[in-house]
């Protein structure tokens, strides 16, 4: 059990966060809570990628000036880090757009609850 947690426990945590974010996005009625669920989902994906980049006994991908590029196994994989760096900034921008849409909806209908909003739109 301890071996399993050490080897793959981080995956369990990531999947738990993914399921938590999906639950928030699908089942919560308040739109702000849906956006919070979306950010949790994003964080889970980012953690999953960073986890994939990790190597045992490796250091950050800033090369050593003495023996450059001699041993790529000594550095963690730089590719997922670069991808996730862009994903974080895009995530912030999408959350901003989502919140501004929500403010507009609230100004128009006076509610951000999903079912109230649907009733409001039907009437």
């Amino acid at each position: 059990m301890t071996d399993f947690l050490q080897a793959s426990g981080a995956y369990v945590m990531c999947f738990f966060l993914i399921v938590l974010g999906l639950y928030g996005m699908i089942l919560k009625r308040n739109y702000v809570k849906k956006i919070i669920g979306m950010t949790i989902f994003q964080a889970a994906i980012i953690l999953l990628f960073i986890l994939a980049a990790y190597k045992e006994d490796a250091t950050v991908p800033v090369l050593d000036k003495v023996n450059i590029g001699s041993d790529p196994d000594a550095y963690v994989n730089p590719l997922p880090h670069a991808l996730m760096l862009t994903a974080i900034v895009v995530g912030v921008a999408t959350v901003g757009v989502g919140l501004s849409l929500l403010i507009r909806v609230y100004k128009g209908y006076g509610t951000i609850d999903e079912e109230d909003l649907l009733k409001e739109m039907e009437s």
Partner: peptide, 16 residues
């Protein structure tokens, strides 16, 4: 770009 756009979004939210 990142600085200016974050500030623009912040300003819009605050304005409203």
């Amino acid at each position: 770009a990142v600085m200016a756009i974050l500030v623009a979004i912040f300003d819009q939210l605050m304005n409203l």
